[in-house]
């Protein structure tokens, strides 16, 4: 578990609010090992989401580097990061963020469709479908394939989001408060799912401000004043 898969060094990020520049991250350094389950904690507004987005190549730091398997994430054209987001990282958001016009299975298949051309999709469709069904079974939703997101409960939606994040078998799963909108029982279910995934070897970085949720992780880091303050395990 010692080989580092994702490493941030001296990451700075500030937001421009009119004339004022609001620094959010001020030299964050963090390493995530392969197969690790890291929880990122911190007060609201401390920049947890911002860090997670930068780790997942969804946002760009002002300064500092992020390396994935030793390669700089932000070197090269933007299209390279698009490919990385598609195949290497899987995002789970606090607000699920499912596409309302699509049913459960289609939502899970979107990352696969993004990867494929029309011809490639037609060729690989059944394979992708099988994968998606398997992942949905993993998160316990195989009986809801044809439901629309608005016909699902919050916990179920979050499971769909997890399944979508896993659709392209990402190297790293990035979860931003996956239980933030759920009651504690449902939250525990979701954590159970994540724990199982982690035991199967999935690297996970998760943002939360619930210590109970964070306790499921191997290691907890805390963001404070734009820096990592503490680490454990």
């Amino acid at each position: 578990m010692s080989d580092v898969i994702l490493q941030a060094a001296g990451v700075h990020k500030s937001y421009q609010l009119g004339r004022v520049s609001l620094p959010v991250l001020r030299g964050v350094s963090i390493s995530i090992a392969c197969g690790e389950f890291v929880a990122i904690m911190g007060a609201s507004g401390s920049g947890k989401s911002t860090l997670l987005h930068i780790l997942g190549a969804l946002d760009v730091p002002d300064r500092g580097t992020v390396r994935f398997e030793g390669q700089d994430l932000f070197a090269g054209p933007a299209s390279r990061r698009d490919v990385l987001r598609n195949a290497t990282f899987g995002f789970v958001f606090q607000f699920y963020h499912l596409l309302p016009e699509l049913d459960v299975l289609e939502n899970v298949l979107v990352p696969c469709m993004v990867r494929r051309s029309v011809a490639g999709w037609i060729r690989a469709r059944s394979e992708h479908r099988r994968d998606a069904c398997r992942v949905l079974e993993q998160v316990g939703l195989s009986h809801r394939l044809r439901h629309k997101p608005n016909e699902l409960s919050g916990g179920e939606r979050q499971r769909v989001a997890i399944a979508r994040a896993l659709a392209n078998r990402p190297r790293v799963l990035l979860a931003d408060e996956p239980t933030g909108n759920l009651d504690s029982a449902t939250g525990r279910e979701i954590m159970g799912v994540l724990g199982t995934l982690n035991r199967q070897g999935q690297t996970i970085a998760m943002v939360t401000h619930d210590p109970q949720v964070a306790a499921c992780a191997h290691r907890i880091v805390t963001l404070e004043d734009g820096r990592i303050k503490s680490g454990r395990g």
């Binding site: 933007a78 490919v83 987001r85 979107v110 990352p111 993004v114």
Partner: peptide, 16 residues
């Protein structure tokens, strides 16, 4: 806009 964000987050390019 949100849906566009979602599909961008799963790897769609801005051109796409």
């Amino acid at each position: 806009t949100r849906d566009i964000g979602i599909i961008r987050s799963v790897g769609a390019t801005s051109l796409g």
